[in-house]
Computed example of a mutant assay.
Amino acid sequence: MNYWLVKSEPFKYSWDKFNQDGRTFWDGVRNYQARNNMKAMKEGDLVLFYHSNEGKEVVGIAKVVKEFYQDPTTDDTNWVVVDLSPVETLKKTVTLEQIKKDPRLENIGLVKQGRLSVMGMKQEEFDRILELANEE
């Protein structure tokens, strides 16, 4: 299994809206590195959902339910989407500030490549964020 993080601005597509929808295709990616990451996603992979710009926090866990296919919002064959479904809302959100302060997360893509909207994660990074979400 692989682990990922996707970003969405809450005013464009929030975790709450995602939960209401129950499933979505992840579109609008127009960065080649992010696109290549989506092409590497496999059904069943786990994905952290991050609210960017407003909030700047990890809010939930999703999973890949359909591997990449042509982005239906464009005729340009360079761009793809994957289908995601929500799995679980985090007990407590994990802020970018917390992530930046945690020595176990110092090399996470969220800090090193802050503008990338779809990024891979190491299992240890994924697990550490879940630990932080479950701390009292």
Rank of each mutant, 00 (worst) to 15 (best):
Tyr3Asp: 03
Gly120Cys: 10
Val29Asp: 05
Asp102Ala: 06
Asn37Lys: 07
Asp27Lys: 14
Glu131Gly: 08
Tyr3Gln: 02
Gln113Glu: 08
Arg23Tyr: 02
Leu105Arg: 04
Trp15Thr: 02
Ala133Gln: 00
Ile108Phe: 05
Leu46Ser: 13
Leu110Cys: 05
Trp15Lys: 00
Met119Trp: 03
Ser14Arg: 01
Gln33Leu: 12
Gly22Asp: 09
Ser117Arg: 06
Val65Asn: 08
Trp4Val: 04
Lys91Tyr: 00
Asn19Met: 15
Val82Phe: 13
Gly114Glu: 09
Ser52Glu: 05
Gln123Met: 11
Val6Asn: 03
Lys7Asn: 01
Val47Phe: 12
Ile99Ala: 02
Gly120Phe: 12
Asn31Tyr: 04
Gln33Val: 13
Gln113Arg: 10
Gly114Gln: 14
Pro10Asn: 02
Leu96Glu: 04
Val65Gln: 06
Leu110Tyr: 01
Leu48Ile: 00
Tyr3Asn: 06
Leu96Thr: 06
Glu125Met: 12
Asp21His: 15
Gly44Ile: 07
Ser14Asn: 04
Phe25Ser: 10
Leu116Thr: 03
Asp76Ser: 09
Ile99Trp: 03
Thr74Gly: 05
Glu97Lys: 15
Val111Asn: 09
Asn36Thr: 13
Glu97Gln: 14
Lys92Gln: 12
Glu67Ile: 08
Pro103His: 10
Leu132Lys: 03
Tyr32Asp: 08
Glu97Ile: 12
Lys122Leu: 15
Asp16Val: 11
Gly114Val: 05
Gln33Lys: 14
Asn2Val: 02
Lys92Pro: 04
Trp4Gly: 00
Glu43Pro: 02
Val118Lys: 04
Leu96Arg: 08
Pro86Phe: 13
Lys12Ser: 14
Lys122Phe: 08
Pro86Asn: 15
Val111Arg: 14
Lys100Asp: 02
Leu48Gly: 01
Thr89Pro: 01
Pro10Ala: 01
Val6Gly: 03
Lys112Arg: 14
Val82Ala: 12
Thr95Ala: 09
Asn31Phe: 01
Val87Glu: 07
Phe49His: 03
Pro72Cys: 10
Arg35Gln: 15
Val111His: 10
Phe49Gly: 01
Asp21Ile: 10
Gln113Tyr: 09
Ser8Gln: 08
Trp79Thr: 00
Met1Phe: 05
Lys91Met: 07
Gly28Val: 13
Arg128Pro: 10
Val81Ser: 06
Glu88Phe: 00
Gln113Pro: 00
Val80Trp: 00
Asp127Phe: 03
Gln20Phe: 11
Trp15Met: 05
Gly109Arg: 04
Met41Glu: 13
Gln20Thr: 15
Val59Phe: 01
Thr95Val: 07
Ala40Thr: 13
Leu90Phe: 05
Pro10Met: 01
